[in-house]
Amino acid sequence: MTDPSIQAVELTKCYNSFCALSGLNLRLEGAKCVGFLGPNGAGKTTALKMLTGMIRPTRGKALINGIDVQENKKAALSTCGALIETPEIYPALSVKEALMMVAEIRGVPSTVRKDAVMKAIAEVKMEEWIDTKCGKLSKGMKQRVNLAAALVSDPIIMLLDEPSSGLDPRGMAEVREIVKGLKKKDRLIFMSSHLLGEVTEICDEVAILDHGKLLAYDKLERLTSALAVGNTKECEASFSRDLGSDALKEIASIEGVTGLELVEPKRLILRLEGGNEAQERALAKIAGLGVGLIAFRPSSSALEETYLRLVKDSR
């Protein structure tokens, strides 16, 4: 079995003289989570809609696992779950019935269909509403059901268009956990979002789009490093215990650390100067301090900085 893949080849969508997407070339392959970023109207949803056969490209091809979505949508989407915008669900169907319909369409065998539906409902925490008519659900609840519909057949590829849209903070956190769970199951996830913190936390790679054109596509760290101001990198460190003032002083004194910001008692934003080697040394020293370092990653503000610079440059 080859790796799952999503590919856009010269993918273009024009409405008269306005092009929502211009010659997008992008190939995502293997199990990972790719964030799809861009300002409103950049063409993210347009690209995702062409990948799911919701709109027809003016030019170019959208391929899922090498199969052209326009030529053979059924085969192309057979392994792909998708949530595009915020769909409405047939109002007179209950949550369970709506998901049973999707499970049936997607070929989940009748012997395990009920279990698959219950599992998807549990995953989006909708057990309490299982028999409620979809027409009576709030927007956030509907979005949970939509996410469950995308998950119900346990697809290999997930296309998610702002999956946290309409959800409360708890719902957003739950969506992040669901996507993290999918990553653990070796799925290929392509997810558009405006929440840079969410993207930083979940995604391995990032594609940035503006004015219908791809500005960058790379690993998150590489992208933020490449576009960092001078040789400075902003990272986020999480600790198992609260950081006292002594610990902060010690960290601040480490060579290469040019700035500190304690955002929470156990979370710190660090500005590191120097190349990878200098940063590696600084990180080793922090770990050696015995202050309970448990996680270290590029900060969402680093991504924000990168994103804003790229988008600004493209205008």
Binding site: G66, D68, K74, A75, G107, V108, P109, S153, P155, I156
Partner: peptide
């Protein structure tokens, strides 16, 4: 680049296939 002939997966993670149109 892939094409329709290069279909490698006709099913989801569990290996099941999609029902016929009827």
């Amino acid at each position: 680049m892939g094409g329709p002939g290069e279909r490698t997966r006709g099913a989801d993670a569990t290996g099941r296939s999609i029902p016929g149109s009827a």
